[in-house]
């Protein structure tokens, strides 16, 4: 199944990978690849989004994702505004919807939203005229992360089709794994997920992957191993006992990495817990593409902004 790139994105928003066709994903990746070149130019800026306003509405702290979006916005000459809210609930006085409507009164073209509750981007997309870009909503999706992961793999391997990708970690709470399962399976890759059984949500296999309770089974012969951050801050000790035990059974160590293919790529969405889910020797080793993921993140976010700026709807006949 090789995707024919679409001519445009159908929706005005990017709320997740779930609504995207393989063709739209292909278009995003192709465009992102072109955007990479801008970073190599003497002037790392193009006027494509000149005069457009982007509001980075981050309800969850995230320096790196927000920074990546800011760089992307500025490279396209857009005006970038940051609104760091700390909580959205009524107890703080203003609801999510009121915050967004107030912002919309200033007519931003885009709102990049990161929120701790799933479904927040969908709510905003319904009521706002601005294009809403999901930068992470609770445990639901993180579409630009999956796109940059896919771009990284594609640049290294030439294609996504037929590759075996293993994703390991706290599956229950991870939006990264959900977006990745959807994207990779839609583009013809074979996805295997693994994590402690007490952190595997029911029915995850139905999203398009094989589910394993033991890490070794998932990474055997894999082309790519993606390690998820163990959500220590959200971890009730009822789901998993200790960091030490996690390392013993679910960390990517040099020994475990040998189970995968010789040239297997090592990936991580960051920030890493060195010595918890990933050994430093692996994170800094020759197979690691973790830093390239970050570079590609800017390119992917530029592609998303560029394509959404172009209007939406079914492509007109040329």
């Amino acid at each position: 199944m090789s995707a024919q790139a679409a001519a445009r994105l159908r929706g005005k928003d990017l709320v997740g990978i779930d609504p995207l066709s393989a063709g739209e994903i292909q278009l995003l990746l192709d465009t992102a690849e072109q955007m990479r070149d801008i970073a190599a130019r003497p002037i790392k800026k193009v006027p494509a989004l000149r005069g457009k306003t982007v509001v980075n509405l981050f309800f969850e702290a995230s320096t790196r994702t927000r920074f990546s979006f800011e760089v992307a916005e500025k490279r396209l000459s857009a005006d970038s505004l940051n609104f760091a809210a700390t909580a959205s609930s009524v107890s703080k006085g203003e609801t999510l919807i009121d915050t967004a409507l107030n912002l919309e009164a200033m007519q931003p073209d885009f709102i990049v939203l990161r929120h701790q509750y799933a479904g927040a981007p969908h709510q905003l997309a319904r009521i706002l005229k601005s294009s809403v870009i999901n930068a992470g909503d609770g445990a639901h999706e993180h579409p630009t992360q999956a796109l940059l992961d896919a771009l990284t793999i594609r640049l290294k391997r030439g294609t996504l089709e037929g590759l075996v990708v293993a994703i390991v970690g706290d599956l229950q709470h991870s939006r990264v794994v959900r977006s990745n399962i959807l994207l990779l399976s839609r583009m013809g890759a074979k996805v295997r997920v693994a994590g402690p059984p007490s952190l595997i949500p029911p029915g995850m296999g139905e999203m398009g992957c094989e589910v394993y309770g033991r890490m070794e089974d998932a990474i055997a012969g894999a082309d790519v191993v993606m390690m998820l951050r163990i959500q220590l801050e959200r971890q009730g000790r009822m789901n998993f006992p200790t960091v030490r035990e996690y390392y013993d059974f679910f960390a990517l160590t040099p020994e475990r990495l040998k189970l995968a293919r010789k040239d297997c790529l090592v990936m991580h969405p960051g920030p890493m817990n060195r010595g918890v889910e990933i050994d430093s020797r692996v994170a800094d080793g020759p197979q690691s593409v973790i830093l390239e993921q970050v570079t590609n993140g800017v390119a992917v976010r530029m592609a998303v902004l560029y394509l959404l700026a172009g209007g939406h709807g079914e492509p007109t006949a040329d």
Binding site: L49, R50, G51, G310, G311
Partner: peptide, 25 residues
């Protein structure tokens, strides 16, 4: 040279309804 990112019909005075496909520079 791909000039898509510098066109004047996809900026704030956008006339085109879809972004041109980016090609290699």
């Amino acid at each position: 040279l791909d000039i898509s990112l510098y066109r004047d019909d996809v900026g704030p005075w956008r006339a085109a309804h879809q972004q041109p496909i980016l090609r290699d520079t």
